[in-house]
Design a protein around this nucleic acid. Structure first.
Lengths: 188, 188
DNA sequence: AAACTTATGGAACAATCGTTCAAGTAGTTC
DNA sequence: GAACTACTTGAACGATTGTTCCATAAGTTT
């Protein structure tokens, strides 16, 4: 029979990872300690050390989980049409309503820069995007994917975060080629 | 007369900031402590606390300094022609020879996401780029600038970092429009 | 040379950290 | 129910941390 203890253990492990993400959203990766995470999860400190032998293991597990979620989100955007407007809306949400979450994602993203074993997970969404979109022009698509990262990171550090309307023309340009936005005003 | 003490003080202050950047390159922002920085700079710990009342001040000073350097580098690339090939070469250098430095820059970059007072410095290179390039198509230029950030961050976390030849077609597409690379093979 | 400002650096503080340990509970297998 | 395994948790360890303090040195001004 299935060991009910292990099942509950997995649940707790997952709860600790989710608490870690909340801590990163609030205080950044720098704020992650066994104690702060355990407090956030409402478990004793030793619960964190039991499931994650080292602090690094905890951060790694969090990155792996977040990377999966990013992939899911990405696929959902593609599934919902993938029009420039849809994409611009998602990006705008990422740097406004979901700002803290996106910031956390990028802090974890950079972690992969220093741990080779995390690179595959961090880049999974890129591979998945290529697989799913099957772009006619791979070069243009790579440029688009790069711009997505850039728009997000620049949006996070902007004085005022861009909204859907700010982003739409740029996304549109990247997908449809030449800038055909603002059709109301004529070239002067 | 000029106070020679203050002059030497400024020099030491600068040396500590430079040491901080080296620590970040080696161990990440997480590795920055008054002690580690002082050790790197070859000064007593209290020298770091004397010039920077708090650790945060030290990181802020480091970001401000790095941001200036990024602007200088960017202007130099523009000045050296700003052709797709030149730009691709600079990007390739950033994720290969200068990998550690670029990683450090992005860790500091993200810091601005949590400190509003740093946003202006972090975005200065963007404003400067627009000022300098005076692009005919601002939307396309914004897309290009976003892609630069994305290419770098993706290059830093890639399994094997892209080289000049990998990046050139993408940069070319972003600047010249439609993909006109690989002219040797015909569309099948 | 006296009065001042600035820089220097060793010692020490309380706080927090990662991690270990050991004793205990509860669920599973036989 | 005995043996085994998985989880739980408080207490504690040594190490490191940011920061303060203070006595001193060195440079500047008057």
């Amino acid at each position: 029979m299935i060991d009910g203890r292990k099942a509950r253990g997995e649940k707790k492990r997952r709860a600790i990872v989710e608490a870690t993400l909340r801590v990163i959203e609030r205080d950044g990766v720098a704020g992650v300690t066994h104690r702060s995470v355990a407090r956030e999860a409402g478990v004793p400190t030793t619960a964190s050390t039991y499931y994650f032998a080292t602090l690094d293991d905890l951060l790694i597990a969090t990155l792996l989980w977040v990377a999966e979620e990013v992939c899911d989100d990405m696929l959902q955007i593609v599934a919902s049409g993938g029009t420039p407007r849809e994409i611009a809306r998602s990006l705008a949400r990422a740097v406004n309503e979901n700002r803290a979450r996106t910031l956390a994602e990028y802090e974890l993203y950079l972690l992969a820069g220093r741990r080779p074993e995390l690179k595959a997970a961090a880049h999974r969404w890129l591979d998945l995007a290529v697989e799913t979109a099957r772009p006619a022009d791979p070069v243009a698509f790579r440029a688009f994917l790069a711009a997505v990262d850039g728009l997000l990171i620049q949006g996070l550090t902007a004085d005022v975060a861009p909204n859907e309307d700010d982003l739409e023309p740029i996304v549109s340009f990247l997908i449809c080629g030449r800038d055909d936005s603002t059709p109301a005003t004529r070239e002067q």
